[in-house]
Design a protein around this nucleic acid. Structure first.
Lengths: 334, 334
DNA sequence: TTGAAAGCGCTAACAA
DNA sequence: TTGTTAGCGCTTTCAA
């Protein structure tokens, strides 16, 4: 591997001049510039990014800390983050926390050690609550979850409104007794719950506490909780789930109990996954704009890298209700 | 941020001694060691990894270059790679190539610039063919795809055998005219094709060339190609797909044509995705051991980092046939 | 057992 | 317009 010294020697200039040419500094004679470029090409010189980072005290790497890469929502967002980051000349360091606050702290620390330029992060409620004590040394943009009050950049779904829309849809279709399953460790679940409850209240439906569940946002929990709900003396007529893993588990439970969808039970969830339109009946979902979320978050963090002083911003995006067959008009049902 | 100098000053020793303590070098007096550690704790010192990497000429980062992070197979493998890497104190730099050879080269170059310790890579056929000309400066382990002949570390499925098993299953169930859709840019598709053809030949079934398709391994292509196949004068009785995105597309096409599975058409594919058991009828698949693939690949690359001289190894893993309802005995069919 | 000092490859302040 | 030089934070050789 040739270094900047080799290039300098080959072009008969100082390393400073090589550096200037590479950084496109203005005051370099055309002839010299060409000589340097020729040497660079000749030696197949590639700058050592580690050295550059050490010297400039910041790297071209962005950290991406997600709670579960197997959740299609985060997969899709990661994809968008990755694309956008590389388009801006940044790399992505990927971390997976499994909703584990200890891992979150560990990875956050790692990001500091790696001197990343910035971080995109979907935190648990626990870490969120002590977020400001953390005193992170790098710009951070939260995705999917944040506190209303917090002075942090964030890109979020309008979860209250999304929860409202989805619940309202069920109500409009004639469902009255609605069981709802939310992720327990995030703000997202709580906000969607608020929208859900608002919709019921506005429709004059009294909420039954035993219909409301907060669980680990995984398909196993979706499965067992749905079975629980269906076992109640008066089981719900529809199931509302707050992420796609929960939806999958609920669907599995409904299948096991051999209930007809949507006649005997309705089902709705979040995120327009590949399978939501593949199963029969296809599932009604509140789709999140994952590309937009990933792209906005990346741009936001890059903007803050460029200007650390700028006031924080929260970008709130709207979801889109996609009505399919898993929830359908009451009069059509039995 | 305090540096090693600050610690040295606080502990009244030289930076060399601090470095020795941190690296757990033997010849340090216990008392001095404790003083240094106390200073480290006091100052909340964290070593600057960039500086460490520059000095030691290698980093604690592994590169992971996959062809499509939205393919659940790669998502699952990434997850395993990530876990294993972090368990060994390594980070993961994630790149997505979209099966684009230019992007592959770009990212490979990036890995060199970033001085990663090693790379895990699922290459296109095109890049694979010129792999040795690339003269990569870091250890590389190929996953999912490789050349039989190549002198490269790799973790692979026994694709020929997997293709054979899956095709044989269809044959055993009584299907004779079988359409098959393979990814076009990878060795994987070709090997699975070989297994597929071997199974037909062993069963004395003559292969019809128009039943064999090579396409972009995406659901859109799976969809349109399946429609094509079904439009043939003598359409196939079953569809064999060589990745889960293709399977999804095929399923969609079958739904649109309102064909009954498995009576009017059988369907099998690769990878036990979340939805394969959720759709009805559930899909028969050849499941890959994704965790094992990711873990083995990471361990392999780390072993080579430790010993660049060791002979290359190919780890060949077996898939598992999971029979579900989308393919079923002939006598049960119409 | 410890410290002084060189140097990894680069950038930028300063001087010429 | 270009070069000299210091130094980013760390590890390691050599000497004491």
């Amino acid at each position: 591997m040739s270094s900047i010294k080799d290039v300098a020697k080959a072009a008969n200039v100082s390393t400073a001049t090589v550096s200037r040419v590479l950084a496109n500094h203005p005051h370099v004679r055309q002839e010299v510039r060409e000589r340097v470029l020729a040497a660079v090409a000749q030696l197949e010189y590639r700058p050592n990014l580690i050295a550059r980072n050490l010297r400039s005290q910041q790297s071209n790497t962005l950290g991406l800390i997600v709670s579960d890469i197997r959740n299609p929502f985060f997969t899709a967002v990661s994809r968008a983050v990755e694309d956008t980051a590389y388009a801006h000349g940044y790399n992505v360091l990927l971390c997976n926390t499994d909703e584990n606050p200890e891992k979150e702290l560990l990875y956050l620390q790692l990001m500091g050690d790696e001197q990343v330029a910035g971080v995109i992060f979907s935190p648990t409620l626990q870490t969120l609550n002590r977020f400001h004590e953390l005193n992170l040394s790098f710009p951070t943009v939260l995705i999917d979850r944040s506190l209303r009050s917090g002075d942090v950049d964030a890109v979020l779904l309008d979860n209250v409104s999304a929860g409202y829309t989805l619940a309202q849809h069920l109500i409009n279709q004639g469902y009255r007794r609605i069981g709802a399953i939310f992720g327990e460790a995030s703000t997202t679940g709580r906000e969607r719950q608020r929208g859900f409850e608002d919709a019921l209240r506005d429709a004059g439906i009294s909420m039954q506490p035993e219909y409301l569940r907060f669980v680990r946002p995984r398909s196993e929990a979706g499965h067992s909780t749905t079975l629980d709900l269906l076992r109640l003396p008066q089981p719900p007529e529809a199931i509302f789930t707050s992420n796609s893993l929960l939806t999958a588990g609920a669907l599995q439970a409904i299948r096991e109990r051999r209930l007809q969808m949507p006649e005997q039970i309705g089902l709705v969830g979040f995120d327009d996954t590949a399978w939501a339109s593949l199963v029969q009946p296809a599932i009604t979902v509140l789709a999140q704009p994952t590309d937009e979320i990933g792209r906005s978050a990346t741009e936001l963090v890059l903007q803050r890298v460029a200007d650390p002083q700028r006031p924080t911003r929260k970008i709130i995006l709207q979801g889109e209700l996609i009505v399919r067959e898993s929830s359908v008009e009451q009069r059509v049902r039995a």
